[in-house]
Design a protein around this nucleic acid. Structure first.
Lengths: 202, 202
DNA sequence: ATGCGGATAGTCAAACATGATCAATCACAT
DNA sequence: ATGTGATTGATCATGTTTGACTATCCGCAT
């Protein structure tokens, strides 16, 4: 799933050099285990996969006492590029069947310039609007086709209702961003939160 | 994924005895490939898994010309029970992180009595309401915790906005069901749609 | 000193999903 | 007759997800 890749890449980017368990704890504190189905195995697997693909490097291995060794990762330049690509993809594209994408994208959107986020959100609203309009025609077509069960129309309506909810959230946030709330790429030297615990191991 | 199991079980239940490709085509015409990530492999795999678990039986194998043999399935009594259990679970439970569940459930809800569907939908609205209320407290807590990144609050808001959209859909449908629209379990002898093509092979 | 819950750090086999690929057939125009 | 593209019916290697499980260490009360 692409949300997992973005989450892992983004979390490593913030805390690098960082080991798997730390990434996992942080993402757990974002409830990503729930909304992105992020199980322990997924985290470690994604780390290994991203490393194999050259987006992450193992920068070392630490052992503390008799505990399992922890592998420490950092982003490569390619990983940086990939992160931005995935982030933009997730932020600019409405994916009604991948609800985790927007959640993951919003987790890292403050790394982009405020202006881009505004444009991306405006674009999302345009996409949703187009979806709503086109789906009305789809529903009319479905209604006139006796071979299609009528619940398919209701499916479309449900998907649109959820999208409408998402659009409402987008509008509310857009207003806050336009009003100068929140901090974006380059506007603030340091993020206010740098840890899920307040204490970084080591 | 549990939506896949419900979809396959339900589709077989409608069209049994039926082969995999037919089930796939039907679910494709419901756009389930999009909203439930239903790839070809998932369908055939689910059929085999459900058969292994005793919920489906292979009632035979047909060969037409030089094409791959088609395996024909039907529900067992256990499969019937499992179908109803999965359907009720999906219909009665709000699962914000499994958006396909409700879509799958609504595909088969007309097999249940109208009264149950009304109760289930009313219960869904209660659940959403509780979610909305509890998440307001969660947001307040998150806001007062400087260690938590502020996007986590926005995550909660987005999830709630989507849920609110779902609730809107639920209310609209509930009204129609209460008004006597649509047909439910035992109210109508035959479903009006029995095929995705109008022509059943054979 | 001992017991016990919780945090730390991660593994692994089994289950499941992915979607390109196959090879025959059909519809239909050239 | 032959090429073209869509349809039929499914498989399979590869990759990903699942989540129970391991094993140590720490804090702290008994």
């Amino acid at each position: 799933m692409s949300a997992t890749r973005l989450l892992i890449l983004g979390a490593v980017r913030i805390f690098q050099p960082v080991h798997g368990y730390f990434v996992r704890r942080e993402l757990l504190s974002w409830r990503a285990d729930a909304w992105a189905h992020l199980n322990p195995g997924s985290v470690y697997n994604a780390l290994r996969t991203l490393a194999r693909e050259g987006f992450l490097v193992e920068v070392g291995t630490e052992v503390h006492g008799g505990r399992p060794a922890r592998t420490v990762y950092a982003l490569t330049p390619d990983g940086e590029t990939e992160f931005l690509a995935l982030l933009r993809e997730a932020l600019w594209t409405v994916t009604p069947y991948e609800p985790a994408n927007l959640l993951a994208a919003w987790s890292f959107a403050h790394w982009l310039p405020r202006k881009e986020v505004v444009l991306a959100f405006e674009h999302r609203l345009v996409q949703v609007d187009a979806s709503l309009k086109s789906s009305q025609f789809a529903i009319d077509d479905l209604a006139s086709d006796p071979r299609k069960p009528s619940h398919v129309q209701d499916h479309v309506r449900l998907i649109m209702a959820r999208l409408e909810g998402e659009a409402e959230w987008t509008r509310a946030l857009l207003e806050r961003i336009r009003a100068g709330e929140l901090w974006f790429g380059g506007e603030q030297p340091e993020p206010a939160w740098r840890s899920n615990t307040g204490i970084l191991p080591d």
